[in-house]
Each structure stands twice: as structure tokens, then as C-alpha cells.
Computed example of a mutant assay.
Amino acid sequence: MIRGLYTSGWSMLANSKQMDVVSNNLANVNTAAYKKDTVILESFPDALVRRVNDRSSSNPSGRLGNVQLGNDVGEVFTYYNQGQLQKTDNSFDMAIENCNTAFFTVAVPAGNGAYRECYTRDGSFTLNSNRQLVTKEGYPVMGQNGVITINSEDFSVSDDGSIVENGQIVDRLLIRNFTDATTLRKMGSNLVERTENTQEQQFDGIVRQGYLEQSNVNSINEMINMITIMRSYEANQKIFQAQDGTLEKAVNEIGVVR
């Protein structure tokens, strides 16, 4: 019975983590270029159970055997498939098409005046007071020559990310294309960063000016997932309560000395 309590309780913890991820997906269904997460469950490894301070002659090791705690959260997997492109006709909005593993490069303050390179698919850019191209959070957007500065309202962005002003190419968007986007790590604010396993490849997609990539979250599917998780949690909860009631009877009724 004790083992059953642990199994049900651990499964409820896994369901809680699943619910957190699904809730976050739903909260970002309208966030530009947000990439949905999903929880991958795995079998919890067997745990060896021992009696504490039990060194009886019949069982000198104190071992009770192994406990299987059911499912555990193996990883939170991110789907980097492209969301639908929405036309905005805003010259500062940009989207990457036909390349799920490519990202715009931004400079994020790292303290002491230093910056670190991070990446985003959210191309809802704007200009700051210095006419530098920045994200909604104010992070500078990087080009081949550094922070991109746009001096004219009349500019265009070509398919390869080149920025053209008055008929002249003034810079090109620094777009990083990775061999495997799943090696990236989310860091909040719709940004990701490299890990030690991240490798680059040549960019072969298209930059669309006047478009924004939408979230790849399907709200209907996420609502179905939420209902499924709630039912699973409730089932584990009822099993937990049933086992707890049985244990109570075993202790308070069957074990009573008359």
C-alpha cells in the first residue's frame, strides 16, 4: 500500500508539470513566433527501499525491495516548426520563411556593459531613440556590421535579409541557422540561446518584410490536453485516497489488539 501511495503521488507531480507547460502554451497562443512545449514522460527508475536501523537476523540488510514510482518528467521538448505568416504591412515587421531552424540575432545585456548573443523568431521590431532596430524589449537587432541603424523611413529588406536604403545595401540581418534547433535553450522573453551541442549551417530560408510569424500553438489541441491531464490527475488522486483509506483501516481496525 505504501508503494502505491508513492506511485500515485509521483504521477500527480508529473501531471502538475504537464499542466504548467500546457497553461504556458495557452498563455502564449497570441505571442508572435512562440514555439510550443510538451512534456515527455519516462518510466521512473526503480528505487531501493530499506528499513531504517533494522538489522534483524532474518533480514540483516534491511532491504524491502524495489519501488516503481510510475511516470516521471523526462524532458520538456520544444516544437520549432514554423507558425503561419500574417501580413501586417508594417515595414519593421519581419518573418523567416521556409527555415524552421533559423533565427534573428539580438544582443542581450549581460552586465558590466557586456552583451551576449541570443536569438528569436519574433520579428516585431521597432526603432529606438538612436534609430537602432530593436525588439519589443529594447534588445538591439544585430546585422553583419553590428547593431542595425536605419536612417530613413523608406527602406526595404530583401529575401536574404539585406537592408536597402536609397538603393544602397547598408547592412544585412545577422541570421543564424542551426543544424538542430532542439539543442537550443529557452531563456524567457521569447529568446533562445546556444548550448554546447549547438552547431550552425548556412541560411537557406527567406526573410519576409511586412509579415509576422504567429505562434505554432493550436489552442484546441492544448485545451484537449488540459482536459486529459485533469482527468489523469483526478484518477491518481482517487487512487491515492482509496489506498490511504485502506491503510487507515489496516492500522486502526485490523491491527487493534483485543
Results as ranks from 00 to 15, higher is better:
184 L>F: 07
220 I>L: 07
176 R>N: 10
210 G>C: 14
149 T>I: 07
120 T>Y: 01
125 F>N: 00
234 E>F: 02
152 S>L: 00
195 T>C: 02
241 Q>Y: 08
185 R>E: 13
185 R>S: 15
121 R>L: 06
164 V>Y: 05
239 I>D: 14
130 N>Y: 13
178 F>L: 04
153 E>C: 08
172 R>E: 12
117 E>P: 09
208 R>P: 15
241 Q>T: 12
197 N>A: 11
169 I>N: 13
215 S>H: 10
230 M>C: 13
127 L>C: 05
128 N>A: 05
156 S>R: 09
126 T>K: 14
189 S>I: 12
230 M>P: 07
224 I>G: 08
172 R>C: 09
113 G>R: 05
202 Q>D: 15
144 Q>M: 11
142 M>C: 09
170 V>P: 07
188 G>M: 03
189 S>D: 15
214 Q>M: 13
191 L>Y: 05
204 D>N: 15
141 V>K: 05
233 Y>A: 08
129 S>V: 09
240 F>M: 03
228 T>R: 01
196 E>P: 11
170 V>Q: 03
238 K>P: 03
192 V>R: 00
120 T>K: 01
229 I>H: 01
155 F>N: 03
184 L>V: 07
201 Q>N: 12
238 K>C: 02
171 D>H: 05
163 I>Y: 07
206 I>S: 08
242 A>K: 14
232 S>I: 06
234 E>V: 01
220 I>Q: 06
168 Q>W: 11
149 T>V: 12
190 N>V: 07
141 V>Q: 10
150 I>K: 00
111 G>Y: 04
165 E>Y: 03
240 F>G: 01
136 K>R: 13
173 L>F: 05
138 G>F: 15
108 V>W: 02
181 A>R: 03
127 L>F: 04
221 N>F: 03
223 M>C: 08
245 G>Q: 14
145 N>L: 05
173 L>K: 00
240 F>E: 06
201 Q>R: 12
232 S>C: 10
119 Y>Q: 09
207 V>H: 01
139 Y>K: 02
198 T>A: 04
179 T>Q: 11
227 I>D: 06
214 Q>I: 08
184 L>K: 04
203 F>H: 09
131 R>V: 06
